[in-house]
Amino acid sequence: MNIGLNEYLFVSGLLFAIGFFGVLLRRNTLVIYMCMELMLNAVNLALVAFSRYNQTMDGNIFVFFIITVAAAEVAVGLAIIVALYRKRRSVEVDDLNALSH
């Protein structure tokens, strides 16, 4: 069986959808965070697949930039979550409702 561009794009789209609905529906901040990473990895998969299909290297290089930026985002994000946990003793979204009108 030959795996072509469409199969990769299907998996990528699926991963992106799982990540997107995870961010919308899950109530735990850490799980939401993982879902965000899932979306970025869906993008990486699509980039590599397109890069191979189009025979250009730009997509492969772009993946490294995305991984680097995602690492920086995780570092900042986990720091905020830890600081918030120290204040509020919870990482559940439902408990984070201090800011509302």
Binding site: V23, T29, I32, E73, G77, I80, L84, K87, L96, L99
Partner: peptide
């Protein structure tokens, strides 16, 4: 911190 987390997500 809560504002930061919301902006982050």
């Amino acid at each position: 911190l809560e504002g930061g987390l919301k902006y982050l997500v």
